[in-house]
């Protein structure tokens, strides 16, 4: 069969960008740069300067100190538990909000932002009030030998709460933009719910999901306020990295404090770099419809 059908689409039109006058651009770029130097580069540089003030050996010693190692372990454990759980909750929430219509949907969407709006200290207090040993539920748990507040589960729960919105907020706009067409197509082709999710929905959202998980990790590593309230600051047991930094600092052990802080900076930089790489891929992927 000869085929006249293969007409190709027209190539995309390249538009010339309209730009602001040069002085305006210089001013804006200059201001941004100045702000960055003053508020980001300088303080970050100082962290490292302080950390290495007493030399490389002292730095290593501060980091190898058992309490520091315990704090790193606790922080990483928290991240390892919180991020997968919030990825799951986030996908569930985003799925429910974008693929179904039900009463109270708008309210649910708004409430998702609550953990961002509430001060982390209050977030911590909520769980102390809910699960502390003086509350009925908390004392019942205590009788069962389960300790939540002032121990690792409390830290995990508080971090879960604080970092809950990241994944869902990343996915909702994405899933809304993608619509339900592909899922409906899969449905008419005979796919079951889990097949549709695994073969269609998940591959479509995977970059957004990973991106949300990275943001979630960054926040889980750095969370101070909520964790501070529920942790009890027991060295070697319930101290995360940010809490450990604070303790060292309040003991006037500045160099050690900054050495540990530099670990946090290092973790933060890593997530930012991974995020940038992902963002690049994410945009490339979502632009090819």
């Amino acid at each position: 069969m000869s085929t006249p059908l293969l007409s190709q689409g027209t190539p995309p039109v390249v538009r010339k960008k309209i730009s602001d006058p040069l002085p305006v651009r210089i001013l804006l770029i200059g201001l941004t740069l100045l702000f960055f130097i003053g508020f980001v580069f300088l303080p970050l540089g100082l962290v490292f300067a302080q950390a290495f003030q007493k030399g490389w050996d002292f730095y290593l010693e501060a980091i190898r100190e058992p309490y520091t190692i315990e704090a790193v372990k606790l922080t990483l454990t928290t991240v390892a538990i919180v991020v997968p759980l919030n990825a799951f909750f986030g996908v569930t929430a985003a799925w429910a909000i974008t693929k179904f219509s039900f009463p109270g949907k708008a309210a649910l969407k708004t409430l998702l932002d609550l953990p961002f709006a509430v001060s982390p200290v209050i977030a911590g207090l909520i769980f102390v009030l809910l699960l502390g040993s003086r509350t009925p539920f908390g004392s019942w748990l205590g009788e069962q030998g389960i300790k939540i507040i002032f121990s690792t589960p409390g830290i995990i729960i508080a971090t879960l709460f604080v970092t809950f919105p990241f994944v869902a907020r990343e996915l909702i706009p994405l899933m809304e933009a993608q619509g339900r067409d592909e899922e409906e197509a899969a449905l008419t082709l005979g796919a079951k719910g889990w097949q549709i999710f695994g073969k269609i929905t998940l591959p479509n959202i995977r970059w957004g999901l990973l991106y949300g998980m990275i943001l979630c990790s960054a926040r889980a590593i750095g969370e101070f306020g909520a964790v501070s309230v529920v942790s009890g600051h027991i060295r070697g047991q319930t101290n995360t990295i940010p809490l450990h930094v604070e303790i060292l600092y309040s003991e006037y052990n500045f160099t050690a404090s900054f050495a540990v802080a530099s670990l946090l900076v290092f973790l933060a930089l890593t997530t930012v770099i991974v995020k940038a790489v992902m963002e690049n891929r994410f945009q490339k992927n979502s632009s090819q419809h």
Partner: peptide, 20 residues
């Protein structure tokens, strides 16, 4: 349910699976 109806549906914007 739609998956047991055995109808072929062609959507207005095709709804091809973009990752496949």
């Amino acid at each position: 349910p739609p998956r047991e109806k055995n109808v072929g549906f062609v959507f207005q914007h095709y709804a091809l699976f973009r990752r496949l």
